[in-house]
Design a protein around this nucleic acid. Structure first.
Lengths: 120, 120
DNA sequence: CGAAGATATTGATGGATGTCAATATGCGCA
DNA sequence: TGCGCATATTGACATCCATCAATATCTTCG
């Protein structure tokens, strides 16, 4: 079994500090946050994340994702790659199958960045 | 003074229920959520929201927003319109000036939709 | 009324993006 | 070794999007 993690965006450092609403963010952090939001700002990718999150162990096989979203296999792979590069999913290959798993805390961290009041 | 509210997306009803991670969302809700996320998924718009949020009364004049983001006035107006149509800002015109104000709870609601754990 | 200033709208343009068909890659099994 | 299956990559294409210049609209003030 091979575990592939593409750390294009490291969730642990970038845009990890003050939320949007307390003080104006600079251009660099805005760019960073926008990149993550863009990865989620697609109906298909939202559904993929949602299905994975609702699955056993917050993990799902590609073969189980294609039919629910109703798109071609290459398109689904493409979306999964974007979600992985944005730091929301990781991929682990077991035999012929590829399993995508939610990165713990990734959504929560983004959530907290959007607003402070919701975290209290 | 004229207050303009474009309720293209009503924040109070659409996508208001279960967060992403508890159970798989349907195509309609995904479409709805994606529309809001897309409105925020731009560096310039994030900065605009952030500046407005950090201003007195969570409100700022267009004339005070152009210089910080460093883009042309029409472009800034365009972004503000998108943020308004997505339900994040409202516009009130006082004299020649247009003031954009944060919609209370709009960011918080989106934030909670992304993840449950951050709201506990 | 007419000029000046603030904001919105329109039109054009280059670049990003979602999608699929075709193809490649890699694994398991006979 | 070779076939079949699951997934990834490539290439092409249509559409969307961010941006600006030019222009329109609206308000205030002389």
């Amino acid at each position: 079994m091979t575990t592939t993690v593409l750390p294009v965006v490291d969730i642990t450092d970038a845009a990890c500090c003050t939320p949007l609403t307390t003080e104006a963010i600079d251009a660099e952090r805005a760019q960073d946050l926008a990149q993550k939001l863009k990865a989620l700002a697609d109906p298909t990718r939202l559904r993929l994340v949602s299905i994975v999150a609702a699955s056993e162990g917050e993990e799902a096989c590609v073969c189980d994702l294609i039919e629910p979203v109703g798109l071609s296999q290459p398109t689904v792979s493409h979306h999964l790659r974007i979600l992985m590069e944005a730091g929301f999913l990781t991929r682990s290959k077991r035999g012929t199958w590829a399993y995508y798993k939610l990165v713990p805390g990734a959504l929560g961290q983004l959530s907290q960045l959007l607003d402070v009041t919701s975290s209290r």
